[in-house]
Amino acid sequence: MKNTILVVLLALVAVVGGSMPYWGDSYWMYEFVNIACLFIFAMMWNLLAGYGGMVSVGQQAFFGLGGYLMLALANLAGVNPFVAIVLGALIAGVLAFPVSKIAFRLNGGYFAIGTWVIAEVIRLTVANIDAVGGGSGTSLTAFRGVSRSFRENMTYWVALAAVLITLVSVYLFLRSKQGLALQAIRDSEVAAESQGINVARMKLAVYILAAVGCALAGGLYFVSNLRISPDAAFSVNWTAFGIFIVMIGGIGRIEGPLIGTLVYWLIDTWFSDYGTWYLIGLGALAILMTQYLRSGLSGLIQQLTGLDVLSTRRVLPDEREQSRPLATTKASHV
């Protein structure tokens, strides 16, 4: 029953959303694509940190790589940019394998900063490659001769498809055997290992999957924005926004990034003109959520309404502690 509702809902979104180019404004489509990129990025960060227990501050490495690989394939090799997005994402996934060999040497907080260094290395390296414009960047020229409306509509549809595919595949992945194993790892690596789960391999799989997703988002973003530079593509702000979205929405919950992105979009629309104060506000909000509402807005909604639509979420150790008094009363009633 729940699944039927979900499928109907998704179909509705696909039909209403998919027809937008025929009735909507082109600015809405552009806005949607940008938000879609952030959403996919946040989904991936949630997968890494919320389920894989890998808190990365360097996912912009793959976002930027996705953008640059797409651009190189399209500009230099003449590949259709939309095909180049997918190819770029796959190549980024392959590159993620050697990168993981380095990053996985570190744990916890040092893993986070280590991934950041790796992103910086890639940024500085790309900035030294003249074929893609060096430090000042370059423009996507592969769309020359293509009509603007066709480009915008296509980009929009690809973004919509990417969002739906990411959402469905992450959902199916988390409900699969591997997904459950992942949540077991998050709760206790040692216990999971003793259950016969190959922790190292699961972590690698998640890391590579997240790299592909982030690169997809990056490729899409720069197809829509047409202009790329190392500083924009590899900015740590991508990860900052991703973290913000996930913490607002609720980490370790599939609906978290969905709600978080919605909230982020609203805040961004209303307050982004305030510049530095806007960013200070975002930082403060993320801190407050972490301190006082660790399960995010989706956790709050669930608490208030008792609804848990997409139930794949993991139980945070803290939440278990909080629920202890509940267990005590339960036990004394029995």
């Binding site: 940190a49 808190v55 501050v57 916890g108 907080g109 986070a112 900052a240 973290i243 913490m247 980490i251 960013l279 200070i280 975002l282 930082g283 403060a284 993320a286 801190i287 972490t290 301190q291 660790r294």
Partner: peptide, 14 residues
């Protein structure tokens, strides 16, 4: 490690 990382990252941006 997540809470301390998110909080110090937020402080960094602030």
């Amino acid at each position: 490690p997540l809470p301390s990382l998110v909080i110090t990252f937020g402080l960094s941006i602030i």
